[in-house]
Structure formats: structure tokens, C-alpha cells
Design a protein around this nucleic acid. Structure first.
Lengths: 119, 119
DNA sequence: GCAGTACATCGACCAATGTCAATCTAAGGA
DNA sequence: TCCTTAGATTGACATTGGTCGATGTACTGC
């Protein structure tokens, strides 16, 4: 048995008597910033529905008309949300002829889910 | 082999030729609203760090002084973030004497992670 | 009761964000 | 070449949200 197990010196040295000691290090500010950036992209009802509609389609790919059909939002607004999701790495865009197709980036949602569980 | 597998009638009946058929139903607007509300509470660097600090402590409980020590934010701002996290169901508050202790609600992060994966 | 401490609430300010109308760009078809 | 259609971009607006100083509240110790 070591000395620190008998006398918890780290507690005594603390100025705040209310505190319990941490069992591990907390997340770094940089890590928190990065995760918050990803979560901000997801934290909107319209964008969640867009992701849901896209991933519900065959090949997890949908064109913009599928979204304007189902969402009661203007076309520029939907285009704006799509841009946010592409820049955050959740969707990718493919233009074929006149139409733009958006697909779910494989593993992107799972990655965020895993990070949340590990906070 | 059924008839619809040979002739995808749902496609022919659609007005939009660009569209591929959905393989399942998309998330309901209500569901998207609820998930967005939870994600908004998480989508802030300060709040992610608060959750991390709390869950890094013994018993996944920390007092406010632990947070004011590590975050370069004013006490009212930290109090505001704590309120957001409590109302979103990620933290719970216990007042003992002069001090307020915040604990992680067990399973709350895992629940959100699971819902994200299932969008 | 009084002073001090810990934390919550209030009010105000500024930045970020969701939304739409108007416009622009690019691709197809006649 | 011109017109139509799909979708992106721009600009403006209203709302939300993060932050802090000032103040309020509740508990402790003297």
C-alpha cells in the first residue's frame, strides 16, 4: 500500500473542498470544438429530415426534387441546408445532367455517434 | 418474382423522372424536431466540455467550481449552459449545502448516439 | 442578525443562423 | 439561338443563442 492511498494528498492540496477528484482527463477544447461543429450541422430538423430522406432512398442517394417534394421549405433554403451538410462531411454531391444527386457519406453518422458515446 | 420487380410501377407513376424510389419511410417531422432539440443542446464546445468534465469525475458528478476552474467563461455563462444541459436531460442537479453538484444522466448520451445511427 | 460564499436569474448586447425573394448559372430541347 | 428547367448564389431580414455585468437567493459561520 502506497502513501497516497492512505493520505489523499491531491485532495488536501486542492483549494475547493467541495470537489471530488477526476478519474480521467476531460476532452480537449480543440476536440470539443470539432465535435460541436459536426453536431451543429446535424442539430436542425430540416437537415435531419434531409439526411433521413437521402438514406431512405435506394443507394442512399436522392435528388433535390425528392427533398422539395417532402419538405415545406423553399428551394434556396433546402439548397442552403444541403451545402451545410456537404461541408460538414455528411453528404456528397454528384451532378448528372440537369440534376444534382446527394448521397450519404458512409460511416459519417456512425463516427459522430461513436464520438458522442466516448465523451 | 412479382410483377413490381419487373415493372417498377412506382417509378413510372412519379412525375419526377430523376427520382429513385425510397426503400423505407423517412423520419417524421416530430421525430426530427425532438432529435434536433437534443442535438442543439450538445452542439456547443462549452457544453461538450462540461459534459466531459462531469463524466471524468468520480461517480460522474462534479460541482460548479470544477467547471469554473477549467473553463474560461464567466460563472453566469456556465450556469446558463448547465441549465440547458439539465433541461435537455443530459445532466441532473443535486444541491448539497452551499454547493450544487451536477451528474451525468446515465444512458442519455448513448440514447442520442443510437438515434443518430438509426436516422 | 450579519457578513461571506456559491450559485441562479435578469437584462442587455452582439454574432450566428434559418428563411425567403430575386437573381444567376448551366444543361436540354425545340 | 432561344426558351425552359434544375439548382446554386446573393442579399436582406427576423430570430435564436452565447456571453457578461449586475443583481437576487440560499446556505454557512461568526
Amino acid at each position: 500500500m502506497t502513501f497516497t492511498q492512505i493520505l489523499p494528498l491531491t485532495d488536501i492540496s486542492r483549494a475547493d473542498a467541495c470537489s471530488t477528484p477526476p478519474t480521467r482527463a476531460a476532452t480537449s477544447p480543440e476536440h470539443a470544438d470539432a465535435l460541436a461543429h459536426s453536431l451543429k450541422a446535424l442539430a436542425d430538423p430540416a437537415r435531419l429530415r434531409i439526411i433521413s430522406i437521402v438514406s431512405a432512398h435506394a443507394n442512399q442517394e436522392a435528388c433535390v426534387c425528392d427533398l422539395t417534394d417532402q419538405l415545406t421549405l423553399s428551394q434556396p433554403t433546402i439548397s442552403h441546408h444541403l451545402k451545410v451538410l456537404v461541408e460538414a462531411g455528411f453528404l456528397s454531391r454528384a451532378k448528372r445532367g440537369t440534376w444534382s444527386y446527394y448521397s450519404l457519406v458512409p460511416g459519417s453518422l456512425g463516427a459522430v455517434a461513436r464520438v458522442i458515446s466516448a465523451i
